[in-house]
Amino acid sequence: MSYVTKSPWVIHYDGSSCNGCDIEVLACLTPMYDVERFGIINTGNPKHADIFLVTGSVNEQNKSVVKQIYEQMPEPKVVVAIGICANNGGIFRECYNVMGGVDTVIPVDVYVPGCAARPEAIIDGVVKGLGVLAEKRAAMDGKTEAPQTAGKEEA
């Protein structure tokens, strides 16, 4: 058993959004949902993170930020796109500067739909992400094939 599933540290980034999903992510940390039960810590530092939670769509301005956070995270790492904005652009999709969902910039492992995504759905998405994380960890040892990224799971 890989320890990576028992201690997933997350980093959260909010792109072009109405901040609805952003607040729902933070709601997961409150006493009501308390994700620390699963060992989840909100780190705020990409170098310590295992799971990248992205809310909101990607635009020309934050494209490089999203990419940089992703690149700074050490393997194994998983990206969870939260809310319909992060999935495919949502209501911001038609905007002149919006590129669409997060998967236009970095590979996404789990999509959590909803506007806003409810905390239960977010936690469910992260837990789905743990499965992918374990697969990626096993792949690092060269025992198994690396799991496919984009379009993998729907929470």
Partner: peptide
């Protein structure tokens, strides 16, 4: 103290072993 349930008592050890499993940067 913050009204939450909190992680398992062994959590620091899980964290420690997880860190050992990560890619070195």
């Amino acid at each position: 103290l913050q009204g939450r349930q909190g992680p398992p008592v062994l959590q620091p050890f899980y964290d420690f072993f997880k860190l050992l499993e990560k890619e070195p940067i």
